[in-house]
Simulated assay, not measured.
Amino acid sequence: MQYRQEYAEPETHFIAAQEPSEPTKKTRSKRPRWQKVALITFVVLALLGGGGMIAGGLYFRSINSGIERVDAFDGVPEAERPVVDQAAKGAMNIMMLGSDSRDPDNESGSRTDTIIVAHLPKDRSSAQLISIPRDTWVSVPKSATGRGGKDAKINASFAWGGVPLMVQTVEKFTGVRIDHVTIVDFGGFKEIVDALGGINVDVEKGFTTAYALNGTRTFNAGRQKMDGAAALDYARERHAFADGDFARIRHQQQVIKAILDKAASGGTLANPAKLNSFVKATADAVAVDKSLNLLDLASEMRDLRSGNLTFLTCPVKGTGMMGNESVVLADKEKAAKVFEAVRNDNVPEILSAAK
């Protein structure tokens, strides 16, 4: 997987392509570009717990040392970062990022289409994954290169200053200190699903994709089995829905839950060949910050399953215009309550405030 840090001007219309203003800067060896659906990392960590911990550990010990690492916190001023309350010591907040450079709307591959704050309570009995729509209008701090320092769509911060500026921007918007960062390649998403032998998804409403891996694809309402290509098309589509990117967020959450359910119940952990294919496919799609130990985290999360995961979306008021840009407007009052509960490691309040 190739980690890319690019610098570009923010998008000029709602959920649209972003043009780079400076050449791409390549900092890693040649592997597929990282792209979207950052929850995949979370899924693998959870799956390698419980009964599969011994077998999973044997695979992960070799993978953990070789997985791609990024300087996620390089240049992030410590004095400007949120302070962790004593009551929340031991809880963990992971920022998950992803982009889809194969999406026809994404011409430069410099956007972060998926932004998630995953909260792991200190007892590790559950997890709350809060999606932040990529076009949310926020205050972006100034990067080390001098870019930013103004209001913009939240994903512009990655284009202007890579992962470190995204960390700063999310911390400023939420008031939540980010402990770790994961980045996932949506290009590897197809292989992950195929390694499981497909997944079952309940399609809420029939639709035909505007784009697909091979022409268009029609999904009928109801439960259906999807291979990797179909699942990728399903999780990517937004044009077919009136609520666009919000529908895509819901579908991503559906697909990730389906992956976790299939892997946990389909004999993956007990089958060395299946486990090998699944873990390798996932490891090829993942990059993490330099301090994250995947094996230790997997051990801590050994009892976590899809029933313990809650998928949420940052409260918003809807969309609006900022100059010539169509943006998502956060409901600042409600969002503040959600993220205050995250800072306090108050799971019931997180769930209540997010309704």
Rank of each mutant, 00 (worst) to 15 (best):
A38D: 01
Q5D: 11
L309M: 12
D85M: 10
A258D: 01
R102E: 13
E191P: 00
H239N: 09
P121E: 08
R343Q: 11
M321I: 02
R305N: 15
H239M: 08
Q253Y: 03
E107F: 01
G57Y: 03
R217I: 08
F311K: 04
D123Q: 07
I130P: 05
V203F: 07
V193T: 01
G50Y: 09
E333P: 00
S65H: 15
I183Q: 06
V184D: 00
G162F: 00
H180E: 11
A87S: 14
I199H: 04
G161M: 02
R111M: 02
E68I: 05
L120A: 09
A88W: 10
W137H: 04
S299C: 04
N271H: 07
L292H: 09
L304C: 02
R217A: 08
F246M: 10
G51R: 15
K280M: 09
M96D: 01
R238N: 08
G175W: 01
L48S: 06
M53K: 14
N276V: 01
I67A: 10
T218N: 12
T182W: 02
I40F: 01
V84R: 07
A55S: 15
A336M: 05
S299Q: 12
D103W: 03
L97W: 02
F278R: 09
M166H: 09
T174L: 05
T12S: 15
K337C: 03
I192W: 01
R147P: 01
K205Q: 15
E300Y: 04
A46K: 00
R33K: 11
T310Y: 10
A212P: 07
V37G: 00
E349R: 12
I154W: 04
T268D: 05
T268G: 04
G228K: 00
P348R: 10
V76N: 01
T268H: 05
M96Q: 07
V76Q: 02
N276S: 15
G75S: 14
F219N: 05
G244A: 12
Y3P: 00
R134D: 03
T282F: 00
Y3K: 02
K142E: 14
A287F: 03
I350M: 13
V170C: 07
E80R: 13
F14M: 13
A247Y: 11
S157H: 08
W160L: 10
L329F: 10
N271K: 09
R102D: 13
S299L: 08
V84K: 11
S126T: 12
M226K: 01
T319N: 13
T310R: 13
A335S: 15
K334C: 02
K332H: 13
L47F: 11
H239K: 11
T218W: 11
P315V: 07
V342Y: 06
K274I: 06
D289C: 05
Y211M: 11
V342H: 06
G266W: 11
T41K: 03
L45G: 12
